[in-house]
Simulated assay, not measured.
Amino acid sequence: MRITVLARCALVVAGTFLVASAPQAVHAADQVESITLSPTSKKYTFDPGSTKEDSFTILNDGEVAYDFLVYAEPYSLDPVTSQPIYQGSKAANADANTWVSFAQTRWHIDPHQSVRVPYTIRVKDTASPGGHYGVIFAETQPQSSDTQGVSLGRKKRVGMIIYSTVTGDLKPAGAVKQIQIDGYQSQTPLEASVHIENTGNTDFFPTVSYRVEDVFGNTKYQTTSSDHIVLPGITRTIPMSWDQASWLGFYKVTVSTTVLGNTTTQSSYVFVAPQWFILLVVVLIATGVVYAIRSHQTRRR
């Protein structure tokens, strides 16, 4: 009986090994499809009526060949959420896409190859001074299956943002609208944010510093960033966070923001603790108060 059980176990193990080691058929959908655009943004300064010839590169580091289309759309940021808005943008300065043209809009790229895509920017003679914005997209196109069964059934697109400034009466203007540091935070990461308003007609890059200190004044985390662009007519929210904060701790958070040469700094103390810990403390305090009252009443009797 024991030999029979061992034999059955050996057959199961052997069968599992044979299935695992057998060659597996690779379906077409398992092959990697990839599209990368470089660079992801370009910044220009133009005179009204000027023309610029330029290009970007599409890289296919996947396993599937495909066709792709190139086209331009408006670009702006939502004034509340700071999220990108493309085709539906109604911002007056989201019009740089109308200046972009392509000699060729449909391209083919093979696996592990790159393609240089040229384009032309023709600025209108009537373009107003200040910032104008758009985005160039490259979008893969579905193909019918070939002799090997390889096909693309969905579209992917990547984009390059165009930040352009038209010369003339430029009016850079903006300020820090609010620095938000919540004094109590129930979980990590330890967060803060700054809201920056652009009231001018051209974009700018603020410098934002974020520092966290412990109760003894020791710096636990510090970072400085100058890579968030603020477009004209919007208030952009720039978030900051530190994910190494303790689940229970007391910190001093300092945010310093420089906008067009003017610096605003704000510091606040932050208590980090989960809500269950706060509830536990409240229950313990309430229990202690009740116990003290009853003890006092008992002694009076």
Rank of each mutant, 00 (worst) to 15 (best):
R211V: 14
T265Y: 03
A7T: 15
G131A: 14
S193V: 06
W276Q: 13
K124C: 01
K156I: 13
D214K: 00
A138F: 07
P74I: 09
H228C: 00
K177W: 02
A292T: 11
L231K: 01
H112N: 15
T147A: 07
T265P: 06
T81R: 09
R299G: 01
D214I: 08
G88P: 01
G130Q: 10
A103V: 06
L284S: 07
E33T: 06
G200K: 06
I234T: 11
T165C: 03
R122H: 05
Q24K: 15
V230R: 04
P48C: 13
V135M: 03
M160K: 08
A25T: 15
Q297S: 05
V253S: 11
V212C: 13
L6C: 11
Y163R: 13
V176G: 09
V212T: 08
T199Q: 12
L18A: 15
K171C: 08
Y269S: 12
Q83F: 14
T98I: 00
V64R: 15
R300Y: 05
T223M: 12
F102W: 01
T126K: 07
T165Q: 07
S267G: 05
E213V: 02
A127P: 02
L284D: 04
A292F: 09
W242N: 05
L77Q: 10
N262G: 02
V230Y: 02
V215F: 07
I3N: 09
V12D: 04
P129F: 12
Q297R: 10
S186F: 05
T224R: 03
H112R: 15
V281C: 11
V166R: 04
G62T: 08
S256W: 02
I35G: 02
Y66V: 07
T254L: 08
V166T: 12
R2I: 15
Y210E: 04
T4L: 13
V117T: 04
G134F: 11
Q187N: 10
P142Y: 11
T287M: 06
S89E: 10
S246F: 05
S89N: 13
E63P: 00
G233F: 13
H27Y: 10
T265M: 05
A20Q: 03
T16F: 14
G217A: 07
P232I: 12
G249K: 03
D227T: 12
F46M: 06
F250D: 11
S267A: 11
W247R: 11
A103G: 09
H112I: 01
R299S: 08
F216I: 00
I109W: 05
A91Q: 13
S101K: 11
T45N: 08
D243E: 15
P118F: 09
Q180S: 11
A245I: 05
I179K: 02
T4M: 14
A29L: 04
A20T: 08
T223K: 14
D203L: 12
A273N: 00
S226K: 07
N93C: 12
G217Y: 05
Y251C: 08
